[in-house]
Design a protein around this nucleic acid. Structure first.
Length: 898
RNA sequence: GCGGACGUGGCGGAAUUGGUAGACGCAAGGGACUUAAAAUCCCUCGGGCAUUGCCCGUGCGGGUUCGAUCCCCGCCGUCCGCACCA
């Protein structure tokens, strides 16, 4: 454009606007305050609009937010703001998962009170979260360490107890020697504590359990209803619950071989069909029969002692030799009185699963086969592949585990294993030993009960008093909450509550005699198993939940969209599903059993690693802000900013303090503003996948921020007072079409949580309308184009708002919009504008694209075919002959087969 | 070992789930503006041959189909979960 020909006023105008860059440092605090003053995001329970509850997993108050939080909360905020624009009464709360061990470690190391440390962290992080411009209802903020929260948790613990969902029992439990506490099964990863990483030890302790196994089947069945959960998470939970169908089978002990008083051995099997392939029994070293036999057999006792100290780590299990010891005890085959089998103690049999005893069928199980080969036990093939010859079919080194035909199994021969299973189950349920059937069908689960006792201070006290006369007695409702004492010391190892001079000494609520408080606190996963319900009415002082708003007809639950990390696929998400059922059973929920209707697991933010001094122990990690990257001959070279020394660029990895590949959200906010950061973490990768944080990518996002600002700023003067309208033809129609299509598609993308695609469409819209907006800025646009541009710009700004809310407000203001961008309804699209009247469809010859055909959308098959065959390149290819076939997929493709 | 997911340009990723492979962004190259830089704008950008246009190309090898990134069979690789579960 030749500026010399432009009117002087426009020159002044446009040069002024072009130099005025969007300034996030000024805009962001301004709009955050304006939203807060207008109470724009405070949600009323009695609002008549349809409810929509969106929630991100609440943070642990570690002290600082990290970039992963930004991504997680940005995603939730897009959903929340979008749903508001769609007319829903949106609940989008925030709270603090505030109990936990780091507070105690800080207390020990820095001589601070865990409460003070936690609340200071909360204050810092709340300040940081507020700078993100999230549309949160802070009036509902909760912290799980607040007695007003854990009071209700204690109440529910007692209610669950009354309802038979809590049990105090002695069990072999996982003891974390570093954190000095027990852990639930779910919290042991590869034989190590989930937090400390220390190998756990097995200890026999009496502890409190939530009877999650009483709901195994319900928790399994419920998974089928969760169609808005990732398949992967459902599968992980299914495997964790681990249902199997089998037979509980009693084997008579052969007379004269068994210790006094022992008459039978119970085993659990999922393969009763292979009963004629049995060649030995194997029992766990901890099995009562093994212990009894060991009393009179010193060699056996020595063997048991040897294998007891087995490791639980994956590596140890991988290499551990399968060892057994013949106890001398014999069992009698249920279908043949004359057939006896030896009973071994074996190191691979787990006391914790089934009955702690198995029968070994070497031909049908690799582990049993290895064992049989080692100890010279018979191998009888009982299942062979269809069509094999039973006379010659042999098993030597490899067990046959697939489906097939029964052989060497007397009355089962010729059946399928499934038929044989049923036949054996039916026969054995008809035979009795003593007065009980010899075989009973039994469903077995892998899931264990949830151990919730923790020998720690900074958690919710278990509201129980132990009395020598009355046993474990619940604290009276009127005495709740049992409040944590604040005068505790961390100078010696173990549980500070237990060390406290007075706190635990109380009188029994039952008999009034001297008694002791339970000094254990609850697993912090209990705190997070119901917080989503508390948000629905955090002001209720008397009950955990208000049944009129928590769920059901006018209630909030289930959470319509829950967003968080995949690391909670089992722990938190399984516990919460149990809790919802337990709360329903005890009257704290009306109807909801599944607390999270939709679940989305977002990926991490990852970053390149940088180090100086080469790989290996001599290398030192350096932070991204310490280096700069130049491209030399197409190759990226990194160097230290401080002295220019070369830096090796390492692989992209999860951000970690140890590798220093972290970016501080504060730094990003200071240089680019939060909208840029939000936009970037949403744009570059699909939300479920990891996103690589790159400086270049952030700059790209920032360019778009400035570009939108410029589109609005440069056209503002010429669009002032122009009423937005959709156009009828020409360039203006193209602008309208682009805007309306985008309104439809971006909505679909947000609803599918495909933010990256939605953002791509926003870029496309900006690209599409740019030339017309240039014309508006230059004053060459006619009235229709101006109206269309005005509407397209409004659409763009409102659609950008969920992702970049501050920029949107600033633009909205410049455009003279009413209220807030954040309170505008989602742009409507005219279906007529979304569908093109003419379509351009590819034309293939023999399946290869050779050109296009542009034709009226509602042209019929015959017309399309005629037009296609008349195309130059088609005629040329046909050489005057008729085509063999013409395939027309309406509005999609034409394929001419020659 | 069992279960699952994934594999597309230099990079992140699109592709209406059988119908134009590479949208959009990043990086790179070229140009305009500028005293210069930044910012911005315009053009090119999977590979090969080539004047138009043609050939190859979605990890590899086959198959089904008018047509395959998508479905089937067999491999290779990466990642995740569980793991002595009877």
């Amino acid at each position: 454009m030749n500026t010399a020909q432009l009117p002087i006023t426009l020159l002044v105008e446009s040069s002024f606007m072009a130099t005025e860059r969007y300034n996030p440092r000024a805009s962001e605090p301004k709009w955050q305050k304006a939203w807060a003053d207008a109470k724009l995001f405070e949600t009323r329970n009695d609002d008549p609009r349809p409810k929509y509850y969106v929630l991100e997993m609440f943070p642990y108050p570690s002290g600082r937010i990290h970039i992963g939080h930004v991504r997680n909360y940005a995603m939730g905020d897009v959903v929340a703001r979008y749903m508001r624009a769609k007319g829903f009464n949106v609940l989008h709360p925030m709270g603090w998962d505030a109990f936990g061990l780091p507070a105690e470690n800080a207390a020990r190391d820095n001589k601070v009170n865990p409460r003070d440390w936690t609340y200071e962290n909360i204050a810092t992080m709340k300040g940081q979260l507020k700078t993100l411009g999230l549309s949160l209802d802070w009036s509902r903020e909760i912290a799980t360490c607040d007695p007003s929260y854990y009071k209700h948790q204690q109440k529910m613990f007692l209610d669950f107890w009354k309802a038979g969902l809590v049990e105090r029992k002695s069990a072999k439990v996982n003891w974390d020697p570093v954190d000095m506490t027990v852990l639930a099964n779910e919290q042991v990863i590869d034989g190590k504590g989930w937090r400390s990483g220390a190998p756990v030890e097995l200890r026999d302790l009496t502890q409190w359990f939530f009877k999650i196994t009483s709901m195994s089947q319900e928790l399994l069945d419920g998974l089928a209803t969760l169609d808005r959960w990732p398949e992967k998470v459902r599968l992980m939970q299914e495997n964790w619950i681990g249902r199997s169908e089998g037979l509980l089978l009693r084997w008579k002990l052969a007379q004269g071989t068994a210790p006094a008083g022992e008459t039978e051995l119970k085993v659990y099997t999922t393969r009763p069909d292979t009963i004629f392939g049995a060649s030995f029994m194997a029992i766990a070293p901890e099995h009562p029969l093994a212990k009894k036999a060991a009393e009179t057999n010193p060699k056996l006792a020595a063997f048991i002692e040897e294998v007891r100290h087995r490791g639980t780590s994956a590596a140890e299990l991988e290499t551990a030799e399968k060892k057994g010891f013949d106890t001398g005890i014999r069992v009698v085959h249920p279908f043949d009185e004359s057939w006896t089998l030896p009973v071994y103690v074996a190191n691979f049999v787990l006391m914790e699963y089934g009955t702690g005893a198995i029968f070994g069928c070497p031909s049908g199980d690799q582990r049993d086969l290895d064992f049989a080969n080692k100890y010279g036990l018979p191998v009888i093939p009982v299942v062979m592949p269809e069509g094999a010859d039973p006379k010659t079919f042999q098993i030597t080194e490899e067990a046959y585990v697939d489906d097939g035909v029964m052989i060497n199994s007397r009355f089962l021969d010729g059946m399928t294993p499934a038929q044989a299973f049923d036949d054996v189950a039916t026969r054995l349920s008809g035979i009795s030993i003593g007065n009980r059937p010899q075989g009973e069908r039994k469903v077995q689960f892998r899931l264990r009960d949830w151990l919730i006792s923790r020998q720690r201070y900074w958690g919710c006290p278990i509201p129980v008093i132990h009395c020598d006369a009355c046993g474990a007695v619940p604290v009276k409702d009127a005495d709740l909450p049992v409040v944590l004492p604040s005068d505790v010391t961390f100078d010696k190892p173990g549980n500070p509550l237990d060390h406290h001079p007075t706190w635990k000494h109380v009188t029994c609520p039952n008999c009034g005699k001297d008694a002791r408080r339970d000094t254990d606190t609850m697993d912090t996963f209990v705190d997070s198993s119901w917080y989503f319900a508390r948000f629905t009415d955090p002001w209720d002082k008397t009950e955990p939940t208000d049944l009129t708003v928590v769920d059901g007809k006018n209630g909030w639950l289930p959470v319509r969209q829950y967003i968080g990390g995949i690391e909670h696929a089992i722990l938190h998400l399984l516990y919460s599903r149990f809790f919802a059922r337990a709360m329903k059973a005890t009257g704290h929920l009306n109807v909801v059993e599944e607390p999270f209707e939709g679940l989305f697991t977002q990926g991490m933010v990852v970053h390149e690693t940088y180090r100086i001094g080469g790989p290996g122990p001599n290398g030192t990690w350096v932070m991204p802000i310490e280096i700069k990257i130049d491209t030399v001959d197409g190759e990226r070279k990194a160097s230290l900013i401080a002295d220019g020394s070369p830096v090796d660029i390492g692989p992209v990895e999860k951000m970690s303090k140890s590798k220093k590949n972290v970016v501080d959200p504060n730094d990003i906010l200071a240089s680019y503003g939060v909208d840029t950061a939000r936009f970037f973490v949403l744009s570059d990768s699909p939300p479920e996948r990891d996103v690589v944080w790159t400086e270049a990518g952030v700059e790209g996002a920032h360019r778009f921020v400035q570009r939108i600002w410029r589109l609005v700023g440069e056209t503002a003067a010429n669009l002032a007072g122009v009423a937005p309208a959709q156009a009828k033809d020409g360039d203006a129609l193209a602008v309208s079409r682009a805007a309306h299509k985008t309104a439809k598609l971006v909505a679909e993308d947000i609803e599918k949580i495909a933010f990256n695609k939605g953002i791509a469409r926003l870029y496309e819209l900006a690209n599409a309308i740019q030339p017309s907006l240039n014309a508006v800025a230059a004053g060459t646009a006619d009235a229709e184009l101006k109206a269309a541009c005005r509407q397209a710009l409004e659409y763009l700004v409102i659609m950008v708002a969920p992702m970049m809310p501050h920029l949107a407000e600033e633009c909205w203001q410049v455009m003279g919009g009413k209220d807030f961008a954040a309170s505008q309804p989602w742009p409507r699209f005219d279906p007529a504008l979304v569908i093109d009247s003419e379509v351009t469809i590819p034309v293939q010859i023999n399946g290869k694209k050779r050109g296009d055909l542009t034709i009226s959308r509602d042209a019929d098959q015959a017309a399309v075919e005629k037009a296609a065959l008349a195309l130059d390149f088609v005629e040329k290819a046909l050489e005057g002959k008729p085509p063999r076939k013409v395939i027309i997929v309406p509005q999609r493709i034409i394929n001419v087969v020659i």
